[in-house]
Design a protein around this nucleic acid. Structure first.
Lengths: 351, 351
DNA sequence: TTGAAAGCGCTAACAA
DNA sequence: TTGTTAGCGCTTTCAA
């Protein structure tokens, strides 16, 4: 079904059909009716591809999102990815644009492995997300001359980026515990080669310094590998160290789950025996199971919003030079960090 | 940058460039080199849109996925959605096609609210997923004449569908508990207006009938609403009923989380005090927190695979009549349902 | 082995 | 107000 057939059916020229469909110029209301009727009868939908070819704006109206393949069974990663995607579609929807989603090959080597959306020249711009970010991939993506936004830290050369203020998040987390009067604040992180962990740690250190508190390597655990297990093992180490810390900042939800499992198995109470601030634990799942933890909220959906808006700015030429947009974080206070006062006990973490 | 400019740079005609790029016909190796060089220098990427217009196959090579907007904070839903999406991209990738992702408006009324991907005529076919499935939407989608696959039950008129064998899952779950020798098997489900719950319940009933066991309404709880809370309240009812059931089949992970919270708060042991079979609890998150539960695995990623394959079949004309593909489920046996035998104790659910 | 030219479905000047 | 025509960037005949 093409505009030609509709035109024939309506007994008008194709340009008239086009005009009706696009509300361009003026069309006699009777002619309009005829066309609309023909469109209705034929269930005609104009071919968007031809449309964008013919139009003056040489754009597809499609943007791409290229995410790393999630690590299997890593529930929180799916969660974050999907929230970012939702954020992006919120904005594309507003603009009447569309989103192509693709997953990056594990190890990018050369331009043969560029994503299909690029190879096929389908997108006006592209948002890259997920860890790790492959340097060669970004370079080749940049080379194609399309608008590019990278979510997350990437250092080799300038790109437009959307960052999360993980430093600020780490700072706030540690500061909160310090202000609550905890003296010996430990930390559990994943591999510090991953920027977001490293930044959270830096924030923690900065807060400790600001409050004239010395940090102690012994209490700062870097635990790479499967995060639930890593969290479990790390908490074990902390609990068995002398003196035992009275609080801990855990830098992601999966590590937190593992750590909480250890505490629970050994009937160690939160926050009575050890206080806890976590990261990104806003889902009902965790809330139901462990009660409302204190955590740093980092607004994943906002990341999507920011990335999409930035990309559209670039496409429209409103963002010449490379720059960053930083998403700020927020402290959500739950019962895992508040010093228990008589009669003021909130819902406890683990009975 | 167009094929024209590349042709000029290489000193050949555009058709020669096209031939080199597509490995069509034979091109002299020297000419080929010249062209490749020019392509390299210009970072030329052929415009995929024009390409698909010009080509003989009048297809865009893009398929669309239209999902319901997830209910906020409902972690397991994000998880399922993202796994299905991953499954779809696995297949589109294999075919060198692309995936457009969009979220449906909450309440679809008329064709003005058709998704952008359809309005803009960008896709060869569309996969609709998520609950609830709006009847009018599907009708209008079908009207456009594009290939259509619906994930989930949809009854008003025939469409190609991908279904999960929830009946079978329910049957297997109940059968497993019966075979383990449990006598009084309860059930917790969400609103039975939602097909997947209703089917799981039917499977459970069928298994009970097959084993000559009467079902008892009192033990079959329909709990609509926020699922973690619903699970908690339902388990409370079951535990307080006389006689207390010795096993329970819980029909989704969020209900399960809520139910487990109740058990834990009241120090009720699983499976000693009550055995448990759940649904779709394969993530590390749950495994770490509650140990390895017995659950029905329903292979979300496979749903994506099946849906995408089916859609491509339809597009290629290999699937004339409407039919269903049913994804079978699998019982994963954990420690929440196995009768404890001396010396054979597996890792317990909640110590 | 290559180039010229037609055409994919549409939009947008230009004419009528 | 409408129709005719020339592209958009590419692929694909058909000739050379």
């Amino acid at each position: 079904m093409t505009i030609k057939e509709v035109a024939k059916k309506a007994g008008v020229s194709i340009s008239t059909v086009s005009r009706v469909l696009n509300n361009k110029n003026w069309v006699d209301s009777k002619t309009r009716e005829k066309v609309l009727l023909a469109v209705e009868e034929t269930h005609f939908v104009p071919n968007g591809i031809a449309r964008y070819l013919g139009g003056e704006h040489n754009e597809t109206g499609i943007i791409g999102a290229l995410f790393a393949s999630p690590v299997s069974s890593f529930l929180t990663e799916y969660d974050v990815f999907y929230k970012i995607v939702l954020g992006i579609t919120d904005i594309t929807d507003q603009h009447g644009k569309c989103l192509l989603l693709e997953h990056a090959k594990e190890d990018y080597q050369n331009s043969d492995q560029l994503p299909n959306m690029i190879k096929r020249g389908l997108v006006d711009g592209i948002i890259v997300g997920g860890v790790p970010i492959n340097e060669n991939l970004i370079r080749d993506l940049k080379k194609t001359g399309r608008a590019l936004v990278v979510i997350g830290k990437y250092k080799s050369f300038p790109t437009h980026r959307v960052l999360v203020d993980n430093f600020g998040g780490g700072y706030t987390a540690a500061e909160h515990l310090l202000q609550e009067g905890y003296k010996n604040i430990a930390l559990i992180a994943g591999s510090l080669d991953i920027y977001h962990y490293a930044d959270k740690v830096s924030g923690y250190e900065a807060a400790c310094a600001a409050y004239k508190r010395k940090t102690n390597r012994k209490y700062m655990i870097e635990a790479p590998g499967q995060p639930e297990e890593a969290g479990y093992d790390s908490m074990k180490r902390l609990i068995n160290s002398k003196p035992k810390p009275d609080a801990v900042f855990i830098t992601d939800p999966s590590l937190t789950i593992g750590a909480l499992r250890y505490l629970e198995e050994h009937e160690i109470k939160v926050p009575a025996d050890i206080a806890l601030v976590s990261y990104g634990c806003g889902c009902n799942f965790i809330k139901t199971t462990f009660g409302q933890l204190t955590y740093i909220h980092n607004g994943d959906r906002n990341i999507g919003h920011a990335a999409a808006r930035l990309l559209f700015d670039i496409i429209e030429g409103n963002a010449q030079d490379e720059y960053d947009i930083t998403i700020s974080t927020r402290l959500i206070i739950g019962s895992s960090s508040i010093r228990e006062k008589r009669g003021a006990k909130q819902r406890p973490v683990k009975h």
